[in-house]
Design a protein around this nucleic acid. Structure first.
Length: 913
DNA sequence: TGTGCCTGCCC
DNA sequence: ATTCTGC
DNA sequence: GCAGAATGGGCAGGCACA
C-alpha cells in the first residue's frame, strides 16, 4: 500500500508530495482555494480555476503545475490526474498512480450537483483519502430543491414584512451557490464586497449569474444581502434595523444551529458531502483502504469498519469545527409511540415496518387476487425511489435479478448475527429454531422484545444489503447484521431474514408481483412481464410502469431473454396426447395424418444463450447470469460467426466427438471468471461444445414471433465455427416414433428427448404446452428408511425428509445412499410421520434415527461415486416412486447392485444423434 | 498449508 | 432438477 | 394449468481455523 502520513496535512513520503498541507511546503497539491487550504508553497499542483482564485487570495510567486481534469500527467516524477470534486468552483481531487497502486484524495467534495461547481467525478482506487466533515449519521441533508425553496420563502417573507433578508455563506463557493439558487425567484441579490470580488472571478471563467448588485448601504430595502458569516453582527449589518439573518450551512441540520450562530434561521445547503453521500462515495470508489480526514473522521471510519471496509482516521484532530452539545439518542419505538424523530427528512414511522406488515397481510390470505390487491395498494403508495428498491424484496431478492451482486449471508451468518444481537443462549436459540423450522419465524421470536427498535427506512434497507455485499467474510457480515438486528423490530428482522434467505414464503412470487405492478399502475400485465424479462429488474419495471413508460424496454441483443421451458411428461403416449388432444382447436398440425412434431435429443449440459455481434460476445445461463467468462474458447470461436445472432442451446462437455457427463462439465462451472490464467486452465481441462437448438435473433431482427420450423430453417443456414453444433431435428408422426427415437436417444446416452411443436413461437420464460421433455429414470432401487427429519415451512411439524440405505452384502449392514422427500403425498407423509415417531431409535432433535422397516422404491436419473453418504455412492434427482408395503428390510437392493449401476454408467459416454 | 464449513448456482 | 397442492 | 413451496446431489470459491 502507498505510504501515507499526516502532519498538518497529508504527506506521501515516497512521492514527497503534500496534499493540502496547512504549512508552506516544497511540493503540494492544493485542492481548492479556501483560505485554510492555501499556503505559500514553492511548487503546487492545481486546477486552472483554483490557481486563478489562489492568485487573487494569496499573491506572490510560485511554480504552478496546472492540470486539466481527467488527464494523467507526470509532475516531478509523480503520475497523477485531477478530477473535479464538486465542492466549489475549481475544486479538485487528486488521483495518484504508484506502480500498480492507485490513491484518490478527495480534498473537500460533494456529490450533489452544485450550480456553481463542476460535478464530482471518481475512479476506483486502492486507497481513498476522504474528507468526512459530516461523517455522522445525523448529517443527512434534505433534498437541495427543498432547501432552496425554504431559503427563497424565507427571503420573500422577510421582504414582505418590510425587512431585509441576510444570507450568510462563505464568500468563495457558498455565496455563489446561493446566488445561483436565487436565480429565477424574482429576488435581487446584493453582494458583500468580498463576495462580489470572488463572484467576478467566477464570471471571468464564463460562469453566469442572475442580475446582482454590489452592496450599497442606501439601497438595501427589497434586496437580498449575501455576506460571509464573519459579517454577522458587523457594523455593516448592525446598521440595518429590520433584518432577518439566515445561516446557510450543513451544520444547520443541528436543531440548535440558530442559537449557535445567533441567527434567525439556518438552512442546510452545504458544499460538503453528507453522511449518505460519504457512504455512497466509498461504494463508488471501492477502495481496499479508506483514510478519513476532518470532522467526524474517527467515527466515520468506525462506521465503515462496521460495514466491512478497512478504514482509519488519519488525524486525531478536533472532531469538529464547532463545539456541539451531545444530542441524546433517538427514542426507540419500544418506549415511545411511533419512533419520533428530530431529524429532517426522517419518516415518523418505520418504512420497512410498513413493508413487513404488507408481507404479513399477503401471507394471511390464500387468495391470489387478494394478495395482488394488497401488494398493488402498497406499491402505488411508494415513492419512485422506494418502488425501485423495495419491489425486488417481494420476490425474495435484495438486488435485481440481473444484478450479479450476492450477499453470502446464509443461515449460519444470520444465526450468528441474531445470537450476538440478542444474547440468546444456544439452547434457547435451538429450541426456538426447531419449534418453527422457518428462518423468518425463528427470527421473529428470537428478536421479539430483545431489541431496541428504531425506524428503518427503505433507503437504509438498500444500504444494508449493499454493505452486506461489500463486507468481506462471514464475521464481518454477521457483525453488520448484528448491528442492524439490534435496532430492528422483530417483524422487520423477520422480513430481513426472509429476504436474505431469498424466499419470502408468503405465497407470492415474481409472477404475482408482476400482476400487482400491472394492477397498481393500470398497465397490461403482459407488458409488465415483457419489460421485466427484458430488464431483468422488477424494481425498474415497476418504476417504468408507474411512469407509463414500459414501452421503453425493448428487446435487444446483449440483453438476455428468459428461456423457453419444457413441460415434463412420463411417456411418449402422454406427449403425443398433448399434441392430439387439442385437435380441432387452434393447433392446425394436430390430429391429421400429417401431424408432425420435432424431436431433439435432450443433452445433459447447461442451458446457455449466446449473443454475438461483430464487436462482442456474451453467454448467459438459464437464470440469465452472465457466464461469458467461464467459456473463453467458446467466446473466441463465436467471433467467427458470419451473422449477428442470439442462439439458444446447451453447453456440454465434449471430447473427441463424444459427449462427456454433466459431472465433467460441472468442474468448469462456478469458476472465477476474472482470473488471468482462466483461459489456460479452462482450455487445459474439460473441453466443451455448444449444441444449438434455437435461433432467437438474426442480423438485427427478433425471431421470437417466428415459428420454430422457420427459426430452424434460418439456423440451418448459419455457418458454424468449431465448438458449435446444431442439434439434429427428427420429425415424428406418432407416439411410436417418439418412443423409438427416445430409446435411440437413451442408447446414445443422452438424457432423453425434447418434443416441440414446429409451429410454436419462442415464448420466453414459458413452460407451456409447446415444448415437452421425456426423461426416464435410469433405474429404481428398493431402499429402507434409516433416518427421518422434520421439514421446513409448512412441513415443520412432519417428518418429511428421509435418509435411506441399501444393504452391504459383505457386512450385512445398512449403508446410507441418499435422501428424498419428493414423490409422497401429504397424506403419506403424515402417515409415515406417525410411524416414525413411534419407531424412533434415537432422537437427535430435528433428526431421528428410525427403525429400518419402511421400504421405499426410489427412482433416480444417475448414480455415481460420492463421499456424501456412507455407501460411497449418491443418486441424482432421487424421488420416491412408492412405499413398498409388500417388502421388508431383508428384500431391499444391495450396495453391490448399486455399484454395478454406477459402473455401467461410467464405462460409456454419450454421443450426438 | 491444508481442511472443513458455508454459500451460490448448476442440474 | 422433481413432485405435490391449492386456487 | 399455473404458481408456489419444499425437497435432492455436487461443484468452485472464499473464509476461518488448526
Amino acid at each position: 500500500m502507498i505510504e501515507v502520513r499526516y502532519e498538518r496535512g497529508v504527506h506521501l513520503p515516497r512521492q514527497d508530495l503534500w496534499l493540502d498541507p496547512r504549512d508552506a511546503r516544497r511540493f503540494a497539491f492544493v485542492s481548492h482555494a479556501h483560505s485554510d487550504h492555501i499556503a505559500p508553497h514553492k511548487e503546487i499542483v492545481v486546477s486552472e480555476r483554483t490557481a486563478r482564485l489562489m492568485q487573487s487570495r494569496l499573491p506572490g510567486s510560485r511554480t504552478e503545475y496546472i492540470l486539466p481534469f481527467g488527464e494523467k500527467r507526470t509532475v516531478r516524477g509523480v503520475d497523477l490526474m485531477l478530477l473535479p470534486a464538486g465542492h466549489i468552483f475549481g475544486s479538485a481531487q487528486c488521483f495518484l498512480f504508484a506502480g500498480n497502486e492507485t490513491l484518490l484524495y478527495t480534498g473537500d467534495f460533494k456529490l450533489r450537483p452544485g450550480r456553481s461547481a463542476e460535478p464530482a467525478e471518481w475512479r476506483k482506487a486502492d486507497t481513498l483519502i476522504m474528507e468526512t466533515t459530516f461523517g455522522l449519521s445525523r448529517y443527512r441533508f434534505p433534498p437541495t430543491e427543498q432547501v432552496i425553496n425554504q431559503i427563497i420563502a424565507f427571503c420573500q417573507e422577510t421582504i414582505d414584512d418590510g425587512g431585509v433578508p441576510v444570507l450568510l455563506g462563505y464568500s468563495l463557493g457558498k455565496a455563489q451557490e446561493i446566488l445561483c439558487s436565487l436565480d429565477g425567484a424574482g429576488l435581487t441579490p446584493m453582494l458583500h464586497g468580498s463576495v462580489y470580488r470572488m463572484t467576478r472571478i467566477y464570471e471571468q471563467f464564463g460562469q453566469s449569474f442572475c442580475k446582482y448588485l454590489r452592496y450599497n448601504p442606501n439601497d438595501v430595502f427589497g434586496k437580498v444581502l449575501i455576506c460571509p458569516p464573519s459579517a454577522n453582527h458587523s457594523h455593516m449589518l448592525e446598521k440595518i434595523a429590520r433584518k432577518r439573518v439566515a445561516m446557510i450551512s450543513g451544520w444547520a441540520v443541528d436543531p440548535n444551529a440558530i442559537y449557535r450562530y445567533q441567527v434567525d434561521a439556518a438552512f442546510a445547503l452545504s458544499d460538503h458531502a453528507d453522511y449518505n453521500d460519504l457512504l455512497r462515495y466509498v461504494e463508488f470508489v471501492q477502495p481496499r483502504r479508506v483514510l478519513t480526514l476532518h470532522g467526524f473522521a474517527a467515527s466515520f471510519a468506525r462506521d465503515l469498519r462496521e460495514r466491512g471496509t478497512e478504514a482509519w482516521a488519519l488525524s486525531e484532530e478536533n472532531q469538529m469545527e464547532f463545539t456541539l452539545p451531545q444530542i441524546p439518542a433517538r427514542p426507540s419505538v419500544a418506549t415511545s409511540d411511533a419512533g419520533r424523530c428530530t431529524e429532517e427528512g426522517c419518516a415518523s414511522t418505520s418504512e420497512f415496518l410498513a413493508f413487513a406488515n404488507v408481507g404479513e397481510a399477503i401471507a394471511a390470505t390464500p387468495a391470489k387476487l387478494e394478495k395482488i390487491r394488497l401488494l398493488a395498494d402498497y406499491l402505488r403508495g411508494l415513492t419512485r425511489e422506494h418502488l425501485r428498491i423495495a419491489t425486488p424484496y417481494f420476490t425474495g431478492k435484495a438486488f435485481a435479478q440481473s444484478d450479479p451482486r450476492t450477499l453470502h449471508a446464509g443461515w449460519a451468518v444470520i444465526f450468528r448475527a441474531m445470537q450476538a444481537a440478542t444474547k440468546v443462549s444456544d439452547e434457547e436459540f435451538h429450541r426456538i429454531a426447531s419449534s418453527h423450522g422457518d428462518a423468518g419465524k425463528t427470527a421473529f421470536e428470537v428478536l421479539d422484545g430483545r431489541t431496541t427498535p428504531q425506524p428503518f427506512s427503505i433507503s437504509e434497507t438498500g444500504e444494508l444489503f449493499e454493505n452486506l455485499h461489500r463486507a468481506r467474510g462471514p464475521i464481518a457480515k454477521a457483525e453488520l447484521l448484528r448491528n442492524r438486528f439490534s435496532r430492528l423490530s422483530a417483524r422487520e428482522g423477520q422480513y430481513i431474514v426472509k429476504i436474505l434467505t431469498g424466499d419470502l414464503r408468503i405465497g407470492l412470487r415474481e409472477g404475482l408481483v408482476e400482476e400487482a405492478i400491472a394492477k397498481a399502475f393500470g398497465v397490461p400485465v403482459e407488458q409488465v412481464k415483457e419489460a421485466n424479462m427484458l430488464l431483468g429488474d422488477i424494481g425498474q419495471t415497476a418504476l417504468l410502469a408507474s411512469r407509463n413508460e414500459l414501452d421503453r424496454a425493448e428487446l435487444s441483443i446483449f440483453r438476455p431473454i428468459k428461456c423457453m421451458l419444457a413441460t415434463p411428461e412420463p411417456t411418449a403416449e402422454a406427449v403425443w396426447e398433448r399434441f392430439t388432444e387439442v385437435a380441432g382447436t387452434d393447433r392446425e398440425l394436430a390430429s391429421s395424418a400429417s401431424a408432425t412434431v420435432y424431436l431433439e435429443d435432450k443433452f445433459d449440459g447447461i442451458r446457455a444463450q449466446l449473443h454475438r455481434s461483430t464487436q462482442q460476445v456474451e453467454i448467459f445461463s438459464r437464470d440469465l447470469r452472465r457466464i461469458t467468462g467461464q467459456f473463453p474458447e467458446v467466446v473466441d470461436q463465436a467471433c467467427n460467426f458470419q451473422e449477428e445472432l442470439i442462439i439458444d442451446g446447451e453447453i456440454i462437455a465434449f471430447e473427441k466427438g463424444r459427449a462427456l457427463t454433466f459431472f465433467d462439465l460441472q468442474k468448469r462451472l462456478g469458476r472465477r471468471s476474472d482470473g488471468a490464467d482462466l483461459f489456460a486452465r479452462a482450455a487445459a481441462d474439460v473441453p466443451v461444445a455448444f449444441v444449438i437448438f434455437d435461433l432467437l435473433w438474426l442480423n438485427g431482427r427478433s425471431l421470437l414471433k417466428t415459428p420454430l420450423h422457420q427459426r430452424r430453417r434460418y439456423l440451418s443456414s448459419v455457418q458454424l465455427p468449431p465448438h458449435f453444433q446444431i442439434a439434429r431435428v427428427m420429425p415424428a408422426h406418432s407416439a411410436a416414433e417418439i418412443e423409438q427415437t427416445f430409446q435411440q436417444a437413451r442408447q446414445r446416452l443422452n438424457e432423453g428427448l425434447m418434443i416441440k411443436d414446429p409451429g410454436s413461437f419462442y415464448l420466453p420464460g414459458n413452460r407451456g404446452m409447446f415444448w415437452f421433455k421425456l426423461k426416464k429414470e435410469l433405474a429404481t432401487l428398493d431402499v429402507v428408511v434409516v433416518g427421518a427429519e422434520f421439514g421446513h415451512g409448512k412441513r415443520n411439524n412432519v417428518l418429511s425428509d428421509y435418509t435411506f440405505a441399501v444393504r452391504d452384502e459383505t457386512t450385512g449392514k445398512l449403508s446410507p445412499i441418499g435422501k428424498a422427500y419428493s414423490g409422497l403425498t401429504d397424506a403419506e407423509i403424515a402417515e409415515l410421520t406417525e410411524h416414525f415417531k413411534q419407531n424412533t431409535i434415537e432422537d437427535h432433535g430435528r433428526y431421528r434415527e428410525v427403525k429400518p422397516d419402511v421400504i421405499l422404491e426410489v427412482a433416480f436419473n444417475s448414480i455415481q461415486p460420492s463421499p456424501r453418504h456412507a455407501s460411497g455412492l449418491a443418486l441424482r434427482f432421487p424421488r420416491i416412486k412408492a412405499i413398498r408395503r409388500d417388502k421388508n428390510v431383508d428384500s431391499i437392493d444391495t450396495l453391490q447392485y448399486a455399484r454395478e449401476l454406477a459402473a455401467q454408467r461410467a464405462s460409456s459416454s454419450a454421443s450426438l444423434p
